[in-house]
Simulated scan of single mutants.
Amino acid sequence: MGKQKKARKYATMKRMLSLRDQRLKEKDRLKPKKKEKKDPSALKEREVPQHPSCLFFQYNTQLGPPYHILVDTNFINFSIKAKLDLVQSMMDCLYAKCIPCITDCVMAEIEKLGQKYRVALRIAKDPRFERLPCTHKGTYADDCLVQRVTQHKCYIVATVDRDLKRRIRKIPGVPIMYISNHRKLLQVNNNKKQPD
């Protein structure tokens, strides 16, 4: 008779002592958890997110007819490609006076793009555009726009960038304007906060 082969066991674990095992010394054992008694007279605290006072349910009351529209770099570029007059098409979309606003970060971003985007730079320097100074460090326009919109809810954000639109949709009461299908059409999306 030959030797009987043992089947090898896969994924076997080494047996370990539990920290509550009686064979362990007193100092090495896991100490039992003590339950804290709650004081019934103590005030109960809840953490509720503070919503801005300008929001009446989901409606932003600070948005009014001379609309202030924060313009992103790619929005200017896409409006040039779609052959849209920026200010006029905004007014056609909203049926009201629009004041396009451009931050220092967006201007810096357009200037960094170089000679290829000189038409976009010329449009951005238009006197109808309102310049907004930036006080923060760095020139990353997306962070600048998101920060400005969270502080002041009186702006509509004009962008074509998917990531920026996704970030702004999380902020309640901020509309997004974007260009769709290279048509002479600007759409306004008055978003609501999605439950996470």
Rank of each mutant, 00 (worst) to 15 (best):
P127L: 06
D92M: 10
C154D: 14
S89H: 15
V149R: 02
V119K: 10
A120H: 04
K34I: 13
Y59N: 12
P100F: 11
D163C: 09
K5L: 14
V87M: 02
Q62R: 12
Y178P: 00
L145P: 04
A124C: 10
R183S: 07
S89D: 14
K33Y: 03
T159I: 01
K33C: 01
P175L: 09
C144V: 13
A158P: 09
R29V: 03
G138L: 06
S53I: 09
R162E: 04
I123W: 06
K3I: 05
V146S: 08
M13P: 00
M16E: 01
R162P: 02
L19G: 15
I69T: 10
D92H: 08
I176H: 10
K33L: 08
P40K: 08
R46G: 00
P172Q: 13
D21Y: 09
K184M: 10
P172D: 13
S18V: 00
A42L: 05
K6C: 09
H152A: 08
Q151M: 04
C98Q: 04
K31R: 15
T159G: 02
K137P: 00
L30Y: 05
F129R: 01
N189W: 06
A141R: 02
T61P: 01
L70E: 12
R118N: 09
V174E: 00
C98A: 14
K9Y: 13
I102S: 05
L63D: 03
A96P: 09
I168L: 15
M1W: 06
C144K: 07
V119T: 07
F56S: 12
T103G: 03
A158H: 07
T150R: 15
K125Y: 09
M13T: 04
T73E: 14
P133C: 00
I171M: 01
T61S: 14
F57T: 04
A108I: 05
I156V: 14
Q88A: 11
Y155T: 07
V149H: 01
K27T: 04
R131F: 07
S180F: 06
F56Q: 07
M177A: 15
R23Q: 11
L121F: 12
H51K: 11
Y178V: 00
Q194C: 01
T103V: 04
Q88K: 15
L63Q: 04
M107T: 03
K34A: 15
K97T: 15
L132I: 15
T135I: 12
